[in-house]
Design a protein around this nucleic acid. Sequence first.
DNA 1: CTCACAACTTGACACTGGCTAGATTGCCCG
DNA 2: CGGGCAATCTAGCCAGTGTCAAGTTGTGAG
Lengths: 201, 201
Amino acid sequence: MPPAQSRNSAERPYHHGDLRRAVLTAALDVIAADGPSGLSLRDLARRAGVSHAAPAHHFKDRTGLLTAIAAEGFGLLAATLTEASDLKDAGVRYVRFAREHPAHFQVMFSPQLLRAEDLELTTARVLAGDALRGAVATVRPGELGLDPRLAGVAAWSLAHGFATLLLGHNLDGPVGNRDPEEVFGAVATMLFRADASVKDA
Amino acid sequence: MPPAQSRNSAERPYHHGDLRRAVLTAALDVIAADGPSGLSLRDLARRAGVSHAAPAHHFKDRTGLLTAIAAEGFGLLAATLTEASDLKDAGVRYVRFAREHPAHFQVMFSPQLLRAEDLELTTARVLAGDALRGAVATVRPGELGLDPRLAGVAAWSLAHGFATLLLGHNLDGPVGNRDPEEVFGAVATMLFRADASVKDA
DNA sequence: CTCACAACTTGACACTGGCTAGATTGCCCG
DNA sequence: CGGGCAATCTAGCCAGTGTCAAGTTGTGAG
């Protein structure tokens, strides 16, 4: 008999076409909804409409999948941070990244779920780190009377904390219905008031 | 035959005594080491030296256990924040709490793992929130020329981000072998330079 | 003292998931 | 056009988990 290819209305060729991408996006959906805990390769296969063993071909195992997600996330983050005009803009972009890619963000900072020694992951992470340091470097040395090392930690902590709390719905009260990125901008300006300190001095 | 009670060198009475506590601490160990993903009631039972069904008696299920941990965490956090002398001290205490109770901290901010409507959890969370607002209120209004609402978000974000990144070993480079709490103190002073802005003006 | 209840145990069931092996399909290169 | 390789499928094994249903043991209240 002819191959039972009447599964869906859409044609379902033997080769999915881009199963890797399909599994990735399905995984992102699941993670964004239920967190990384409720993630199984079999479930993703179901969602993608392929057999349960197919995903393992692209990502060796669960950890491999999560590692790939994290690597992709650091790549995306690096890309947007590189385009930042100054430190505050970098912070806003950091927060925006977390909001637009909550699943990536969550996985990126859950080292216990990742294959730490993975090459793609480590290189992407370095890339993002460089981008962040680049943004910190846009602050003219001494402008804030601060150690650039400390300033980097401060900026990263502020943006990361804001983003994390935001995703955890811990800022729903204070932020209200305002645009989170705008609120973050206000916070950042308040603390890193470069202009103010210069003008006031 | 007499009950086979020669399991261990220690006496192992039928009633564990405080199994609830034992399971909790075992869970904290596991979480601190492998994250909340690799957590199973059966494993905890093994570690506590009891039968596999015993833990369910105290915590209905996995989610119940994690919820209990989160509630305990918020309680502990509230306690230490209440004793803070000022905002910076509260921040340092926040970071210290995260370092001393990494498992609690991790679970507290993973809402996807918790029973959100749990009473103990919500009350403990409110308590912690009040303590935090109390610390923010120690800043004399207008001293920093800032909206207290924003200041709260800023302080919380900074401390939370620092703590999170620290636990994820993302600050190993910048912090080096210095005391993390001291580094955080420096960061906080740099950004929230209340004295400086007053004296410099 | 006894009786009811809480803490715990044992055993079994149903499910899910990861992993492996071997067949099958289709694309692409020579 | 033919062969080889990568992608995918089918099938099944095994380990682990939560959960239920009875039993057993200790404890404390009356």
